[in-house]
Design a protein around this nucleic acid. Structure first.
Lengths: 184, 184
DNA sequence: GAATCTTGGCTAATGGTGTTAGCTTTTTAG
DNA sequence: CTAAAAAGCTAACACCATTAGCCAAGATTC
């Protein structure tokens, strides 16, 4: 009966789709199994358990986001590149809020590991400016924190007031760019 | 048998304690009931369901954090107050990472409502500077996003590199302060 | 002071979930 | 062609949230 063409990759695909619809909390092995046309215990042939599946989803999202950020940076330099990457980051989160929120999985401290490619993308952009080595680290952390904080709050509907969120984000970009400029 | 001195307040107290230990995902009505010395169905006399309990925990945390931020701001003015509030915010998150992470509850868009007092605290601090009305909104959003992003990443162990996290946060504070200064 | 109502607890039961164990069938390898 | 591995299945268990219905304690009212 090995007919359903499953694989770890395919299971993660389905899981990501479910996360898009119902959010990360709504992700359940039973639903994934149903979507795959398979009984839930069968999933354990491709995934260790629900926690691991969540970690895999997180890694998938981190990879996608890293690609988007990296792509936005090519052909640009310096402060221009910073703004482009930040916008790409936020745009990803806006396009798929639930998926973006699944980036950080609470019980796993491995998030750092999954976010590795993303960090490298940011690092690459900031490397274009001539900052001291540890300033580079601090700047990367600040950029990441700022844009992640903004993206996650926006994805959560946390900005209730009528003022333009785009304008707020423009200010955030300015903030980061100006700070980096003052350090070069 | 109305002996266990329960109340909605007391249930939230216990829930917050459990969140501190096991994280928000580890919060379960069964555990709260056990901690209260009561059977789980009894909890429904004080709380509508698990989702509501999570919302209440979120509101509790928002209130505590708002107090901490407000307290840090008294007796200070302008840029000094901004830095003090940001540090108080981060310190709260560091002292109780799990509790802090429970601030934002995914399935609820009511987070905005629970975070109201917190927003007002930040607003009060920035009001001390003479910004235009909508600049005030944008600045509040940026400050909130920046410090929340930093706090949540730090609570998650997201900063793996050996460089000083305190230094990174100092840069973040500078970033926000400088941005606000340039707008006055 | 007695009767009533409300409050806050209880047990029993249901449906959904993750997970394990053990079996069977299909596919692959030799 | 045969044996082993891969990938599915059913049955079963423990845990959880939630509902229904019951019962006792305390407050309220006559």
């Amino acid at each position: 009966m090995a007919r359903a063409n499953l694989s770890t990759e395919a299971v993660v695909d389905l899981a990501v789709g479910l996360v898009d619809e119902d959010g990360s909390a709504g992700l359940t092995l039973a639903k994934v199994a149903a979507a795959a046309g398979v009984s839930s215990p069968s999933l354990y042939k491709h995934v260790a358990n629900l926690a691991e599946l969540r970690t895999l989803v997180s890694a998938r999202v981190a990879g996608e986001l890293a690609d988007a950020v990296k792509t936005a940076g090519v052909g640009r330099a310096g402060e221009d590149a910073i703004g482009a990457c930040m916008h790409a980051w936020r745009d990803y989160a806006r396009a798929r809020p639930h998926r973006y929120a699944a980036l950080i999985q609470r019980p796993e401290p491995h998030t750092g590991k999954a976010a590795q490619p993303l960090l490298e993308s940011v690092f690459a952009v900031l490397r274009g400016l001539d900052l001291a080595e540890d300033d580079l680290v601090h700047a990367t952390r600040c950029l990441r924190a700022a844009v992640h904080g903004f993206a996650i709050l926006e994805a959560d509907g946390g900005f209730g007031l009528p003022e333009s969120i785009d304008d707020s984000f423009a200010l955030m970009v300015d903030m980061v760019v100006a700070s980096v400029r003052s350090r070069t």
